[in-house]
Design a protein around this nucleic acid. Sequence first.
DNA 1: TATGAATGAGATTTCATTCAT
DNA 2: AATGAATGAAATCTCATTCAT
Lengths: 214, 214, 214, 214
Amino acid sequence: MADREDRRNAPDERSDPDRPTSRRARGALTRRKLLVAAEEAFAAKGYHATRVDDIVKAAHISHGTFYLYFANKEAVFGALTETVAAELASVGELLPVLRPGPVGAAELEAWVGEVSEVFARHGAVIRAWAESETAATDDRSRADDVLKRFTEALASRIASAEPPDPDPEAAAVAIVAMIERTHLSLLAGRADLDRQRVVRTLARLVHGALFPGR
Amino acid sequence: MADREDRRNAPDERSDPDRPTSRRARGALTRRKLLVAAEEAFAAKGYHATRVDDIVKAAHISHGTFYLYFANKEAVFGALTETVAAELASVGELLPVLRPGPVGAAELEAWVGEVSEVFARHGAVIRAWAESETAATDDRSRADDVLKRFTEALASRIASAEPPDPDPEAAAVAIVAMIERTHLSLLAGRADLDRQRVVRTLARLVHGALFPGR
Amino acid sequence: MADREDRRNAPDERSDPDRPTSRRARGALTRRKLLVAAEEAFAAKGYHATRVDDIVKAAHISHGTFYLYFANKEAVFGALTETVAAELASVGELLPVLRPGPVGAAELEAWVGEVSEVFARHGAVIRAWAESETAATDDRSRADDVLKRFTEALASRIASAEPPDPDPEAAAVAIVAMIERTHLSLLAGRADLDRQRVVRTLARLVHGALFPGR
Amino acid sequence: MADREDRRNAPDERSDPDRPTSRRARGALTRRKLLVAAEEAFAAKGYHATRVDDIVKAAHISHGTFYLYFANKEAVFGALTETVAAELASVGELLPVLRPGPVGAAELEAWVGEVSEVFARHGAVIRAWAESETAATDDRSRADDVLKRFTEALASRIASAEPPDPDPEAAAVAIVAMIERTHLSLLAGRADLDRQRVVRTLARLVHGALFPGR
DNA sequence: TATGAATGAGATTTCATTCAT
DNA sequence: AATGAATGAAATCTCATTCAT
């Protein structure tokens, strides 16, 4: 399935492994061009409205070549998703111990800022995410997984905060939902918001929500 | 455009308003059948994956008849959206004055419960909403408008709460985002949540976020 | 086939033949309304582009009623055609003996003027004619017949003129072609012409063509 | 629009003009096959009655491929039209100085013969022309333009003949109308005519009409 | 006589994907 | 590794015509 979904290695590597890599390097370049073009296309038109044609045209790559590297549109999107997933996962791990008081608030805001940056960098994918998510009932797996792990990390932090939240899992879901969706609004240009206000407000709300008694 | 987008009146209504209702009634029935079928179809497969064919099959209506009542898929969706918009708007108006303390918290929870019910009732549309929203850059107007008005109502309540929030608009956007998106998670069956937990948690978080110092 | 093509008598006349004719009269009125509407519609959009729907809407008649009077679009057009055919035939009979000299020229011009008036009055049908003519290989019969009889009348006049034309049939075809097509140009607004110039020129050319040696 | 109306270059020609011609040649061939098939189909059934399906079947080409080369039926027709337009324009330029007497008559007949040959070669398009002309009010531009330029050329010749015609523009319109329409009759097989008689008669009539006093 | 809702065949068009070169 | 022409399944939409009331 890896082979079916993402033919990253497709250009056959058995032959001539010590040739000046030009072949292999060229292939890698093509793949990257496609990924870049795809991200732009998804950003511009959204996941569903993007045609394979839009991607290959933007990449100045032939139609046939696309299928040499990716099995289909979904696969490119999956590849993009993985990058984002990785970044998001690593930011997830930076999540500080949650604690009350101004220091805790500042730490939280710094972290929300990091998350926000990932969203800003990959707005396109995130947006398309929301689209693809609701659609087909089975291929949203990757997107889900990422957010799930992210949510779990947050849940465990919430659970170990003092005082403990009465329902860390639900709270984590809600907070992740808020962060994600608010950034979507930001990206969509709905509401007159800028990223700084969003980050501040999110951090403040989350901190307030988790430590209401202070 | 009303004519083009939503041919609700299509079966020609100009003449003789007091003619035997039967014929007109039949038309209205068909229209309703289509709306019901559409809502189900969108719920089952999502907006993009739903074909006009799915709708007419479910409604046991011929393909041609569909186009007698709606110009296209978008138009049915628009009609559904309007219903939800109306319900959401009326719930928005029920929003209580936000105030600290257990009474305020209880009031807020009751309200979140109301909102939640709308979401539960129209999960399908809400989900499809998220999809169509990010997609075409221009016809998401209606969906946007609804949430916008909803958000504004919340923002004004937040602004007049005591103590006042430092950034009511941003806060309102974030809170609406949280409520909406969390319900999407709930609908999607992601995370092991039930509606009660979600409502409680959302209310608690929102209340805590708005009145952190108590 | 008359029955199939033109259900003029459709509204069943067996019953109650001596009722105050209201029934029958009403039917006749409806039929006329449809004919008028059809002529307008054909004029506005051309034969092919005209939908039965355009006709019934313009006539403020229901869709079903249309089929009570005419089997289809072609049939209405056929009915219109017959009117024009009749007028054209009667004008054809007015064709004067063709003779040289200024008197002959004046007589010819008068006649061309008569023809022109028929064309002006029924421009719509004439235009649609040209369309329907080339289209289906079998139902252009009526239109053809009319022009054919018209052409034959002209041919016989040409044949009996002095001096006789070397090829009266061909000449008649060409002359009828010229008169018809020039009026189409006039109707279409192509070229800056007015009817008077057209009539004069046509008459002059025809007369010159038939009596070149004078 | 060029891109939309006539995707003649569709099989993407930007890169590498000296690449093995075969691929590009194949595309060109396909395009030609489609044009030929289209001309035949229009000839057989007329413009309106011809379906894209008729064309692709005759060309032994898949439906999808058609849309690779032409945006729609109108576009193929437009492409055909251009060919005819070019031929007609070049014949138009051959129009001799019009002069009285047998030599002038012979010259004119030779020219009418040339025109006639174009009509014979492209009867299909010419017929469809007449159809499409009266139909849509806006896309008949090309066809109109051709005849207009043709007419203008004739008008200027008529204007500079000796003696001058009293209304060269109107005369030119009428004469072009006669030539065109008579050929349509010929093509349609109406009237028992052959091309030679038509050419002779047209030439004789035109000459007589323009130089009546001789 | 008249209505107009419903039908369904058929036409157009799009686009992901394959395949010969 | 790359190309791009060709494919064809599928989706959308239109409209002449029927039929129950």
